[in-house]
Design a protein around this nucleic acid. Sequence first.
DNA 1: TAACGATACGGAACCTTGTTCCGCTTAGCA
DNA 2: TGCTAAGCGGAACAAGGTTCCGTATCGTTA
Lengths: 191, 191
Amino acid sequence: MGERKPKRADARRNEKTLLDAAAAVFVASGVNAPVRDIAAKAGVGMGTIYRHFPTRADLIIAVFRHQVEACAEAGPALLASNESPYAALVQWVERYVDFVVTKHGLAGVLQSDQAGTDTLHAYFVDRLVPVCAELLDATVAAGEIRTELRPLELMRGVGNLCIGADSDPRYDARRLVRILIAGLRCETMDA
Amino acid sequence: MGERKPKRADARRNEKTLLDAAAAVFVASGVNAPVRDIAAKAGVGMGTIYRHFPTRADLIIAVFRHQVEACAEAGPALLASNESPYAALVQWVERYVDFVVTKHGLAGVLQSDQAGTDTLHAYFVDRLVPVCAELLDATVAAGEIRTELRPLELMRGVGNLCIGADSDPRYDARRLVRILIAGLRCETMDA
DNA sequence: TAACGATACGGAACCTTGTTCCGCTTAGCA
DNA sequence: TGCTAAGCGGAACAAGGTTCCGTATCGTTA
């Protein structure tokens, strides 16, 4: 589990500079900002950025790692602090949606079929699906949900609903996610 | 409203050739296939393709126009042939999902925030949102839905849920859409 | 039917964006 | 102070959409 710290001091400095620059650019221009812009903002050459982060996706992961970890850790905590697992699930999903919707363009880049996004998609899935599974299992065990759904499908569905939520005030992803979750409590096979 | 037919015979011939080639390539390699591939398949130069279809999106629209029209026309028909507006809505949405999910990568390219896709997104919205609105209004009027939702939001939500439905058998978009629609019948603000 | 002008065509060239390569620089050590 | 490997900058490459322009062709007219 050891952190692979770059040996040289200037390298360590550059890594931090790059993370800061990337974060700033992502806020200003969205997650889809060109790598060149980030390098420019950091005052660094292309080679440097790619030695530290072998791929665009790796840079994105690095920038958001803390928040993803925090979200993952919030799962068990919510489960513990709510008497109703369903309530915990709803709160956790809302937290995830808040995170994703806030990062201009992140949802759109989480799709596995997008080129060069495999690592990013995999990281989100690996880290969050197990947490989602735990919440979902508890909710099902408590009998609060009628329709079973695989955790992966829930995560991807929620993520997909968040796409384009920024950049169009007429589209309220949070509400659609609430409706989707509400649908889990209903019989689905009628009509 | 007049069809702007190209005057010259070879031009008309090429347009048809291009549409056929594009359709074939979309089936074989997905909607994201490079324009060059389509030109090659049609045995035509790049200039030709761009004179007939000013943009990738315009070509995509042209290829799927018939099916989108058919889907739009199915709305009122379903409303007429079902005693329950909700049933009609469900069937219409299922039809739309079938269409979108079947076209390798189409859902992913329908997002308005994607570059160069504005025309495509606009066409789908212009043609289908009014139909959806009609179905939704009828369903609400019949009191079959508790949660009101703007037609545009429903269309975009459904479309988003379809993203990546091909290329991953573990993700069943149809089921998620059913759950979303089911959610419309529940109280959403609980828990 | 031959000539001519407008219409189309082909495909090289351009732009943007991710990624790779390589010669030069410099930190860290003896 | 010098040596060497770790780092660095940025030009170059690949891929995809789009534009441009010289050439070929259609269809009409004399």
